[in-house]
Amino acid sequence: MIKIEKLHKSYPIGKDSLHVLKGIDLHIKEGEFVSIMGSSGSGKSTLLNIVGLLDVHDEGNYFLNGQLIKDMNEKKAALLRNKFLGFIFQSFNLISYKTALENVALPLYYKGISRKERLKTALDYLEKVGLKEWAEHLPNELSGGQKQRVAIARALVTKPKVVLADEPTGALDSTTTDSVMDLLKDINDEGMTVFVITHEEEVAEQTKRVVRLKDGLIISDEITAVGKSKAV
């Protein structure tokens, strides 16, 4: 599903440049549930953004669903994002003037689906994350956990092949963290590939594979206990 070879990424800082990813090799197959860990500044978000086509890499190869990602213009990237990818951000990134339901329905608008069907599907997904009653509320009327569940519903509504989550539980307490993780597990059980960044060992433990980054390199890549038990 995701295949990365010798990936490099630097950020220009004034005249110098900061080498963030220094040759990453990573292969994630369809249906995997992978977490990335690593200290702050190790390049986790950078990697996820490149995988999510929100940013571009400098060197190396990246294949998404078998397609080489190279010289991608914004239009093509938008199409691929809409078709294959769902995003969950630490800061939710809901549109503040749209209701929960409208936020969830928005990716379907860019897919060209009719309004009636959009709203119906969006409501189904809100129900799935347990927020059907909150459909008409604006984001600032929701708690952090509720917002993140709306964001998850929005990431899922297009039935993406890969869900990318950058510290989805970073802003949540332990109870809401558990409910979000349960949702991600359900998604994965339905066959979606889930790729999640986290700082919390308890979160990583619930995924099937943990990749650890340090200074722009992968230092370990292990199947978790959960992963082993599921594999059997």
């Binding site: 999510g52 239009k75 938008a78 994002r81 809409n82 078709k83 995003f87 990134n93 990716p107 860019y110």
Partner: peptide, 16 residues
């Protein structure tokens, strides 16, 4: 700008 970023992450083409 941020709203546009969100919309693009959700699949909005620049032209739209």
């Amino acid at each position: 700008t941020k709203e546009f970023g969100i919309r693009k992450a959700l699949g909005a083409k620049p032209a739209s």
